[in-house]
């Protein structure tokens, strides 16, 4: 009897799980299939569940406009942010985990508190700062503020705890400089952490629609998500769902691929970044 109960329970949970899976996947299926439909097909009701006459026209229309430039902007901004975040965060995380100096705890607590702070809270002063320094529509405006966000420090501190003190000690006795000790001893050990942080940061930066919206206002400086948002909100293409879906696919597919390639790094990062001990 007990066995029966369990199998009914199992069938029940798997049915719900599959239902949820369909619900979650469907919008992405709709993006992908929609990108191969021309506008007149896309707006017919009853809808075409599967494109009967798939076309690449949406993509060719998309790539004749400024999309290439937006794509390159997105790549450049994400790479720049990732490089800076990984460098600054691994240095700081290592120092906060392994070095004792006055104020280190206070600084760490300050970082943790700031992490809960919504970005919009500092929207106005940050915007003023960017404008006063003449940084509107520059890569700096889209990269530097993101580097100040201390999530990475937290993650890298967690990873740095696993560096054995004895190794650091013996490097010091051998006369290694502090910086050499970091690059030769610590860095190889925290590499997986840096990998996780890099993927996180790359995706977060690519998807940082809010900063892109606030700190740019020229078509040349738009990113892929921002450009797509403007297409969708403009009059000309508002109902051209085929074209918009092609744009949605191009804006998200790179991140989905990055995620699928590095899923294990990512999972490890999420887990370590969250639960202590």
């Amino acid at each position: 009897m007990g066995k029966n109960k369990i199998s009914i329970f199992k069938i029940f949970s798997w049915t719900i799980l599959i239902g949820l899976t369909v619900f979650f996947i469907f919008p992405f299926y709709w993006i992908a299939s929609g990108s191969f439909k021309l506008q007149d097909v896309a707006i017919t009701i009853p809808p075409e569940w599967f494109p009967t006459k798939p076309t690449l026209e949406n993509f060719s229309q998309l790539f004749t406009s400024s999309t290439m430039r937006w794509f390159l902007n997105s790549v450049f901004i994400s790479l720049g942010t990732t490089t800076l975040v990984c460098t600054t965060a691994s240095l700081a995380g290592y120092a906060l985990a392994k070095k004792k100096f006055p104020g280190s705890n206070a600084i760490f607590v300050m970082f943790v508190c700031a992490m809960a702070l919504p970005k919009q809270v500092i929207l106005v002063p940050l915007l003023n700062l960017i404008t006063e320094f003449g940084l509107m529509n520059t890569y700096v405006a889209l990269i530097f503020p993101a580097v100040g966000w201390p999530f990475g420090v937290f993650l890298m501190k967690q990873f740095s705890h696993s560096i054995p003190n004895e190794l650091l000690e013996s490097a010091r006795i051998d006369g290694c400089s502090e910086f050499k000790t970091f690059t030769n001893i610590a860095l190889p050990i925290i590499k997986p952490g840096i990998g996780a942080l890099a993927i996180f940061t790359f995706i977060a930066s690519w998807n940082d629609y809010f900063s892109q919206l606030i700190f740019t206002n020229t078509p040349e400086m738009a990113t892929l998500p921002l450009g797509l948002a403007q297409l969708a909100q403009g009059q000309e293409f508002a109902n051209d769902y085929g074209l918009l879906m092609a744009g949605a696919l191009v804006a998200s597919l790179p991140m989905i691929l990055v995620f699928l390639m590095f899923q294990n790094y990512f999972t490890q990062g999420v887990t370590l970044g969250a639960v202590k001990g």
């Binding site: 600054t88 240095l91 070095k99 100096f101 280190s104 809270v121 940050l126 530097f144 201390p150």
Partner: peptide, 29 residues
């Protein structure tokens, strides 16, 4: 552990970004 002042150099880069782009705007806000 002995007090290790080199720690300040390691946190200096992030602290600079943090101060200019998070802390200062917060106070200014």
């Amino acid at each position: 552990k002995k007090i290790d002042y080199s720690g300040y150099i390691f946190i200096l880069p992030i602290l600079t970004f943090f101060s200019v782009f998070v802390l200062f705007p917060m106070l200014r806000g």
